[in-house]
Design a protein around this nucleic acid. Sequence first.
DNA 1: CCAAGAATGTAGCAAAAGCTACATTGATTG
DNA 2: CAATCAATGTAGCTTTTGCTACATTCTTGG
Lengths: 167, 167
Amino acid sequence: MKHGFVKGRRVWHGGAMVSRKSSPRPAPRATAAPSSAAIQKRTRQQHAQERAEDYVEAIADLIAGSGEARATDLAKSLGVTHVTVIRTVQRLQREGLVTTQPYRSIFLTPSGRKLAAEAKARHETVAEFLESLGVPQATARADAEGIEHHVSPATIAAFRRFLATGG
Amino acid sequence: MKHGFVKGRRVWHGGAMVSRKSSPRPAPRATAAPSSAAIQKRTRQQHAQERAEDYVEAIADLIAGSGEARATDLAKSLGVTHVTVIRTVQRLQREGLVTTQPYRSIFLTPSGRKLAAEAKARHETVAEFLESLGVPQATARADAEGIEHHVSPATIAAFRRFLATGG
DNA sequence: CCAAGAATGTAGCAAAAGCTACATTGATTG
DNA sequence: CAATCAATGTAGCTTTTGCTACATTCTTGG
């Protein structure tokens, strides 16, 4: 059932070696279950969701800071060109997270605001947590940007617990 | 210099309102510097690097577990189809991280092994750290998968420190 | 008011990573 | 040894997010 060579020698997988004979239908093969199970939905939607959070959070920050979010400032804030911003904002509008009109700045819808608030809260927690561990502030903030999208509620809760009990 | 409306009222940015007159050249505009500075090189290369690490780590795990890494098992381990695996493995081969031949399994080059080892070490550290914080093991492992690519050496060091001093 | 220039928008390209459907290869089994 | 079928590979599509180059719009300074 398995085939393959390792330096010329034939090998089999994980010792499973299920008998195809015993079950007419192939049946779910007992393949060596990978240790790091990769339940990860690493589809494009995952990245799209992260982008969406980055954008709404940046938009919220810009609005909080200067009253409006313009494509150019957003581009600067996110480190991409304004073209990319415009196209991504179009997608976000399609998804109901933001509203915008030609030559006008960008606003968050209620659900966009909600998402931004959640993302920001996670972001803050992660950053504070890393700082409390002794990571330099600049590094902590930079890492938090990358990490925030991948922490489950349970992990965020653990971070908060740690901070609360005098990290 | 700035334009835009907020609920019909005109607003300006951050109070900067630089005088274009005083300096003939526009000069670096004092745009409201975004708080979350986004030094992030969020280019495609970033994602490509993460994919590469995921792949070499999974390949290393498969080799460690069953002596070889085949496209199908890799696909299962990573949660994608074998087609995606084959194409990505082609890229990795182009980049000198793996070697493979038609209808043969996949091997790591020395640099691939190095990358896999680094990724695995980070992964382990992150997972152990999360567990030591009280995050359930399954969740910790899942989160570590996502987080490991975004932790700087400084943060990893902080995690190790924490673990060493009796987390 | 109008010209300059910033901001915004459009067109078109590339790369990466996902997919389905189909073709080919090769190891196992009867 | 030949047929079967898993494993591998190819073709071709899609979406997302980058980019450059160019076009359009709008604000503003003179």
